[in-house]
Amino acid sequence: MAATPPRPTLRERKKLRTRAAIRKAACRLAAEQGWEATTIEQIAAAAEVSPSTVVRYFPVREDILLTDDQDELLLARLRARPAGEEPLDSLRAVVLDAVSAALAHEPEEILLRARFLVEIPAVRARFTETTAQTGRLLSGAVAERTGRAPDDLEVRVFTAAVLGALREATVHWAEHGRREDLVPLLDRTVDTLKAGLTLRRPGRARP
Rank of each mutant, 00 (worst) to 15 (best):
L74T: 03
D63T: 07
L166Q: 09
V94T: 05
V60C: 13
A169T: 10
L65V: 13
D71E: 14
P121V: 02
E154S: 13
P121I: 02
D187W: 01
R81M: 05
L66M: 12
R7C: 02
A3E: 12
E32L: 15
R136I: 10
A20T: 10
A160L: 06
D152L: 10
I64G: 04
T9W: 11
R148D: 06
I40H: 09
V60T: 14
R179N: 05
E168K: 10
A26H: 04
E48D: 14
Y57E: 14
V123Y: 03
V162Q: 00
L166S: 09
E72K: 03
G135R: 01
L29P: 02
W35F: 15
R79P: 03
V155C: 03
A46W: 02
P51F: 10
P150Q: 08
L197S: 04
E129M: 15
T4Y: 10
I43Q: 08
A31L: 14
L111M: 01
T134L: 15
A125T: 07
R23K: 13
A44M: 10
E32V: 04
A2Y: 08
S139R: 06
I43L: 11
T134Q: 12
V99L: 04
L166M: 13
A174Q: 09
R11C: 00
L163G: 03
E48P: 00
P6T: 02
T9H: 02
A114C: 02
E36I: 09
F58Q: 12
V54G: 09
T39E: 05
T4R: 13
P150M: 11
L16C: 04
I64N: 01
S90K: 10
E86T: 10
E41F: 07
R7K: 14
P121E: 01
P107H: 03
L111S: 07
L66Y: 11
A174Y: 01
V118F: 07
R23W: 11
R179S: 08
R201A: 11
L185E: 00
A114V: 05
T159W: 01
R201K: 06
L111R: 13
A37Q: 13
A125S: 13
E36L: 12
Q42Y: 05
L75I: 07
P6Y: 06
L166C: 15
G196C: 02
L163M: 15
I120R: 15
D187V: 04
L111I: 06
A161K: 14
E36H: 03
A169H: 06
A165E: 08
F127E: 11
A3D: 09
V54F: 06
E180L: 12
R167L: 08
A169D: 03
R56M: 08
R126E: 14
L65K: 06
R81Q: 15
D89M: 01
T134C: 12
D89Y: 02
S52D: 13
E62P: 11
D181M: 11
V123P: 01
R92A: 10
V155N: 05
L112H: 13
R56A: 11
